[in-house]
Amino acid sequence: MRIENIVSLILRINVIVSIIIMIIGYLTGSNLLWIGTLLLIITPLLRTFSALIIFLYEKEILFFFSALYVLIIFIISALMI
């Protein structure tokens, strides 16, 4: 399976699962509402992480380190704010 197809699948499943959890949370008045929202918020992080793993698996070292750098900067910037 190509990297594009794997990341595409991860994105689609994650967003659909997030919105379903959010709706269930809203209807039941439970914490699932914010759990679903959090899951949605971290979707782009998951796709970067999955790309990182795939680049490592494919031995595409330049892109692996690029993705790793992006993830590190992401964490630093989230901590800085």
Partner: peptide, 20 residues
């Protein structure tokens, strides 16, 4: 985030998104 994720899932399928 929602727009980017859903749209990207379609664009990746069409190979229009250049991940690298």
């Amino acid at each position: 985030i929602a727009s980017s994720s859903i749209a990207t899932s379609f664009y990746l399928h069409e190979k229009m998104t250049n991940i690298r």
